[in-house]
Amino acid sequence: MIANYGYKDGSGEFYISIDTDKCTSCPVEHACLTGCPKGMFEIITDDYDDVVAAVKQSFRRSLAFDCSDCKPVGGYTSLPCTTACTPGAIKHSW
């Protein structure tokens, strides 16, 4: 399942997509949890009893601001979350 967490507003579309099929057999022991400097990810049991990553509820309405530090303007050349997630389950829409 592709889970898109986020929103679209007047300034753009801000979604973090998680391919949860890649989470169920995560070979890097959910490195997203520590990879994100703000701790935006959590591990949940979804509706199909799969243990998968998700964006915490408290961050889902403010992704544009919360993720801005990790974008090139913040000095990063690649996103820490997508780098930590070597199976490639995490993607940003912006």
């Binding site: 399942m1 592709i2 889970a3 898109n4 986020g6 929103y7």
Partner: peptide, 12 residues
């Protein structure tokens, strides 16, 4: 009836 992909708008 299993979800393959979903998107919502959490903000407004």
């Amino acid at each position: 009836g299993k979800v393959v992909d979903f998107a919502g708008n959490e903000k407004c």
